[in-house]
């Protein structure tokens, strides 16, 4: 058990380093949207999801409703359901229900990736190790970014507002280059969202993201069905 935990901690280190910078970007955005450092950090601690948190903070700032907030989280974070489903198939016998309830809190894209790559059945100790280190990085980055957003001169903090979007671009573009389905999904989502924003101005930001995502992903799934072996979301 001890070895599993240590192995998990080690596997969490690169994730934590990556998270530091992503959550730094989130911290900056949150403060610019009017939240305090502790609020940004609390959101990171409770959610552990980059895109969902960004959308949530945006809705908070724009004054959206709770139902919209819930729907936005559901759509943006729906991919976790697939990852959780996939991981649930490779858990060790010792992975009891209470442990599942705890560990599922930390299933993110990156944690899913290392867990899916484990050659042995997943233990709670291993997942706990990965999650502890990764979430520590996530929280530290958020607090640092939020604090920086409050301290840095306006010109610099404004420029840093683009950091998180830069990361989104860095995630989408390489995948879109390699897979036509991803390219189509990304381009059509961007185009549909743009159209909705300009043509249907009564539609709020959260709902237009949902509509664009559902339409683009469905169209891409019909036109470019995946082979169905890997769930590398």
């Amino acid at each position: 058990m001890k070895q599993h935990f240590t192995r998990g901690l080690l596997h969490g280190i690169p994730i934590a380093l990556g998270y530091l910078s992503v959550s730094f970007g989130f911290g900056i955005l949150a403060v610019r949207a009017g939240l305090a450092v502790w609020q940004a950090t609390l959101i990171s601690a409770a959610c552990v999801t980059s895109a969902g948190q960004v959308a949530g903070v945006g809705l908070l700032a724009a004054g959206g409703g709770l139902a919209e907030l819930a729907l936005v989280q559901l759509t943006i974070n729906l991919r976790y359901a697939l990852m959780s489903l996939s991981l649930s198939q490779k858990t060790a016998e010792s992975f009891s229900l209470p442990k599942r309830l705890l560990a599922s809190f930390g299933i993110t894209d990156e944690i899913f990736a290392v867990c899916a790559a484990e050659p042995v059945p997943l233990t709670f100790s291993y997942m706990a190790g990965v999650i502890l280190v990764s979430v520590a990085g996530w929280l530290a980055g958020t607090a640092l970014g939020a604090a920086a957003g409050e301290i840095l001169p306006e010109r610099i903090s404004a420029a840093l507002g683009i950091v998180l979007y830069g990361m989104f671009i860095a995630i989408v573009i390489p995948a879109a280059r390699r897979r036509r389905g991803v390219l189509f999904a990304a381009l059509s989502a961007a185009a549909i969202h743009l159209l909705l924003r300009f043509l249907v101005s009564s539609l709020s930001g959260g709902f237009s993201v949902i509509l664009a995502t559902l339409a683009a992903s469905s169209a891409s799934a019909l036109l470019f069905p995946t082979e169905g072996k890997k769930e590398d979301a």
Binding site: G58, A159, Y165, V182, A186, A216, F224, A233
Partner: peptide, 26 residues
């Protein structure tokens, strides 16, 4: 459904980025 779920993260990120990125840095 598998394909749909596979494409969702990319579609979400693209929709969140466009057009928000164009007002993200001042």
């Amino acid at each position: 459904i598998r394909s749909f779920l596979d494409y969702v993260p990319y579609a979400v990120l693209a929709a969140m980025t466009v057009p928000a990125v164009f007002s993200s840095a001042g």
